[in-house]
C-alpha cells in the first residue's frame, strides 16, 4: 500500500477529525462554526483529490492527445463551497442574534440564562 502517495487523504482525515472535535468540544458558538468550516473544507479537499490525474492538464480540447483531470468533482465542490458559505453566514447571523438576546455566545452561560428564567 502506498501510504505516502495518499497524503492528501491523510490531510482530509486529519482536518475532518480536527473540525469535528472542535464542534463537539468548544462551548463558544463562533468557535464551533470555525470547527464546522474545517470539517466542511476537508470534504472539499477530498472531492478535489479524486478528480486529479497524475500529469493531467486542464480539460481543454486540443489536437494533441493529453491526460485530463476530471473537472466534474471540481464543479460539484464549487456548489458545495457555496452551500458552505451560506451555512457559515447563517450560523454567524444566528450567533449575532444570540449575542443580542442573551448577551453572550458561550454555551454554558446561555444554558444558565435559560434556567434562570
Amino acid at each position: 500500500m502506498n501510504w505516502v502517495g495518499l497524503y492528501n487523504y491523510w490531510i482530509v482525515i486529519f482536518l475532518m477529525m480536527t473540525g469535528f472535535y472542535i464542534v463537539v468540544s468548544q462551548g463558544n458558538l463562533v468557535k464551533k462554526l470555525v470547527g464546522l468550516n474545517l470539517f466542511q473544507t476537508s470534504v472539499f479537499i477530498q472531492y478535489i483529490s479524486m478528480g486529479k490525474m497524475p500529469g493531467g492538464t486542464a480539460p481543454i480540447e486540443s489536437s494533441a492527445p493529453a491526460v485530463y483531470s476530471n473537472p466534474l468533482p471540481h464543479v460539484l465542490i464549487l456548489t458545495a463551497i457555496v452551500v458552505g458559505v451560506a451555512t457559515t453566514a447563517l450560523g454567524l447571523a444566528l450567533a449575532v442574534r444570540i449575542k443580542q438576546a442573551y448577551g453572550t455566545v458561550e454555551e454554558d452561560r446561555i444554558r444558565e440564562e435559560d434556567r434562570n428564567v
Binding site: 464542534v23 458558538l29 447563517l90 442574534r97 435559560d114
Partner: peptide
C-alpha cells in the same frame, strides 16, 4: 430560545 434551537439544528 428559538435562536439557540436554530443554531443547534444548524450545527
Amino acid at each position: 430560545r428559538a435562536l439557540t434551537a436554530a443554531y443547534q439544528y444548524l450545527i
